[in-house]
């Protein structure tokens, strides 16, 4: 649909849009190209193109990284980190969806003293630097002595704290212009509160929920600064693994990992774009 709306805008604005887009896309292109280099170092422009490092990341292919370092399966380190980040992101997303949706319902549907305060409190992780949240949790876990320190649960809680505000935001947005008489109509037709929620409310706020899950997943998957404080001994996340690797090595394997992360995000966006939820995700137009 290339329908023109309004009277159009000054040419300068379009130029600005192109500049902004370039800033978003160029780094991704550089990562992708760097990961596809035929040479042995992480640099740009690449020295010829090949799938060498992509295959190496997957633990396949000749002249692989494993041999050159001698470390037992450095590539599997990346694969495992990728898998771990995926699992962490999936669990954080599920938990944030449940918590965030309930919080959004309460915050938009009920009026109680201090609501505005609680609302901004729930959204504060969006505003606070990750370092602050990470440090706070780090100290809290140590002090609380609940065994959360350096545990998977502790890490997961950290990610849920980061992700939930995104769900609250997107779900609240779809609840703000929700017509309450739809629920009342359902109730008067004989539907219980639960039936009403499942058959009327939930389908209608689905765009917000989908948008919230995309946000949440991407944020958790790429999370770095909070994770640094909560890292656990058994397994590192992908961003931490990339960071560690860059400190001691100069090969392009992190770029290859980056390619996979980018592909993962693009695929998840494409899958949901079809349902039209992407507009709500980006905050464009109504759902």
């Amino acid at each position: 649909m290339s329908e023109e709306r309004g009277l159009g805008m000054p040419v300068v604005f379009r130029f600005g849009a192109i500049v902004a887009l370039s800033f978003l896309i160029v780094p991704m292109l550089i990562i992708v190209l760097a990961g596809l280099t035929a040479g042995g170092y992480l640099k740009f422009p690449p020295e010829g193109l090949s799938l060498r490092w992509v295959l190496a990341f997957l633990g396949l292919g000749p002249g692989s990284y494993v041999a050159s370092t001698g470390a037992a399966g450095a590539t599997t380190v990346f694969i495992r980190a990728f898998g771990f980040s995926f699992l962490l992101a999936a669990l954080s997303t599920l938990a944030s969806l449940a918590l965030g949706t309930m919080a959004a319902l309460t915050l938009t549907r009920h009026d109680f003293p201090g609501r505005a305060f609680i609302q901004s409190f729930f959204l504060s992780p969006l505003m606070l630097p990750g370092i602050v949240i990470g440090l706070a949790l780090f100290i809290f876990y140590r002090a609380a002595g609940l065994g959360l320190s350096r545990s998977f649960t502790g890490l997961l809680i950290g990610h849920i704290i980061i992700c939930t505000p995104f769900v609250i935001r997107t779900v609240s947005a779809s609840l703000y212009n929700f017509d309450l008489s739809l629920e009342e109509a359902a109730r008067s037709l004989g539907a219980s509160p639960l039936q009403t929620f499942r058959q009327i409310t939930l389908p209608l706020i689905m765009p917000g929920i989908t948008a919230g899950s995309i946000f949440s997943f991407i944020v958790s998957f790429g999370q770095f600064d909070v994770t640094v404080f909560l890292a656990i001994p058994e397994q590192q996340t992908l961003p931490l693994t990339i960071f560690d690797h860059l400190r001691f090595h100069s090969d392009p394997i992190p770029a290859a990992a980056g390619i996979f992360a980018i592909v993962l995000v693009i695929v998840s966006l494409l899958v949901t774009a079809r349902s039209g939820d992407l507009k709500a995700f980006a905050g464009f137009g109504k759902t």
Binding site: D179, A185, A191
Partner: peptide, 18 residues
């Protein structure tokens, strides 16, 4: 409301859009 067995027509009709 669900136990009252009443039919209600709303000002904006409240037809389920989905």
């Amino acid at each position: 409301p669900e136990k009252r067995n009443l039919g209600m027509v709303f000002q904006n009709y409240a037809i389920f859009p989905h």
